[in-house]
């Protein structure tokens, strides 16, 4: 009986339930309007489409939980794809390309993290600058032309295990790692503390700067992973790949229940947020809504999600 009460109480605390409900309602509505939605082919399609957004959203989620933000994710994704493709075209074997690209991603994240913590520049500005630097570098390396890839590394984006795309499997692995990291580890707990009250976190002996650099490094690594997935899907690295992804990624995090003021958010919620974005985009295509309307709607969804968060906060503080 007591266990039952505890279980009920725990379920009541799960902040992901409204997000899951929203996702299910969205699916039901689209399935009702388009019979094609629930075919296996489309379901895998949706998963593949939002897997990259979800992978990036896990990293962005960690950053937003510490109270920071990263606007450079789309541009870094493009740059990392280009760097990987360049190494591949030099004849590097796939594992070496993978390791080197991940290292580039970590290095980019370290740079942002150091600028934010040691030089004390606002993360918004640092990553806005990084966005432009990364995009420009991709264009400089490629001269604006796509690089085609003939290397085993494309398995990450194009391969399947059974019927399941490899990118979807990677997404689940990243999500599970993110979940364990945030709920069961020491640094995971620390990032919530920093987002809640950085001063108190420091006084409690948490190395706040090191933790903040760490989340940007993780983000850089996930950008590298996503860059290889995206270029692998098409066997081509586009210098413009990932343009505008930061919007979808931040939207997924916010829809997933994280607060832009930091200290709040869960990985399952964030992945569901990414799924909502993916289903929404897929629904627009299936229902043949104009692409221009998609852009408008995504913007409204973001504002709506933040508005709900802000209204909830206000009533909790009254």
């Amino acid at each position: 009986m007591q266990a039952l009460v505890r279980l009920a109480r725990q379920a009541g605390r799960q902040k992901e339930i409204p997000i899951l409900a929203a996702l299910l309602i969205l699916c039901v509505v689209i399935a009702w309007m388009s019979p094609f939605f629930l075919t296996w082919q489309n379901i895998f399609n949706v998963f593949r489409q939002f897997s990259v957004i979800a992978i990036l959203a896990v990293g962005e989620g960690l950053i937003i939980i510490t109270g920071g933000i990263d606007l450079s994710v789309g541009a870094l994704l493009g740059l990392m794809g280009v760097l990987g493709a360049t190494l591949a075209s030099l004849g590097w074997p796939a594992p070496a390309v993978f390791v080197a690209t991940m290292a580039f991603g970590c290095a980019a994240g370290t740079l942002s993290g150091l600028l934010i913590t040691k030089v004390r520049i606002n993360p918004f500005i640092v990553t806005l600058g990084m966005m432009s630097v990364a995009r420009g570098t991709s264009l400089l390396i490629t001269g604006g032309m796509p690089i085609s890839i003939d290397n085993g590394i494309t398995y990450l984006g194009g391969g399947h295990i059974g019927n399941v795309p490899v990118s979807v499997i990677i997404m689940f692995i990243v999500a599970i790692c993110g979940y364990v990291f945030t709920t069961r580890t020491l640094p995971g707990r620390n990032i919530y503390a920093i987002g809640n009250n950085e001063r108190a976190a420091k006084l409690s002996g948490i190395p706040t700067d090191r933790m903040k650099i760490m989340v940007y490094v993780i983000m850089g690594a996930l950008c590298a992973l996503s860059g290889m997935i995206v270029s692998g899907t098409l066997d081509t690295a586009e210098p413009a790949a990932g343009t505008g992804y930061e919007l979808d990624v931040i939207a997924a995090v916010v829809i997933g229940g994280a607060s832009l003021s930091g200290g709040k958010g869960s990985i399952p919620g964030i992945v569901m947020g990414a799924a909502i974005m993916g289903v929404l985009r897929n629904g627009f295509v299936l229902l043949q809504v104009s692409a221009y309307w998609q852009v408008v709607t995504i913007g409204l969804v973001i504002i709506g999600a933040v508005a709900i968060d802000s209204i909830k906060n206000r009533s909790a503080n009254a």
Binding site: L186, P187, R189, N197, A201, I206
Partner: peptide, 30 residues
């Protein structure tokens, strides 16, 4: 301003400064 982690639980607030004593490696023993 300097004390509480407002959105975190009583448990997490209490364990914060001594959290390392509840960790084996990086994993927390909850």
């Amino acid at each position: 301003i300097q004390g509480i982690f407002a959105d975190m639980s009583v448990r997490e607030n209490i364990s914060m400064a001594g959290l390392r004593s509840f960790a084996r490696g990086l994993m927390l023993m909850r």
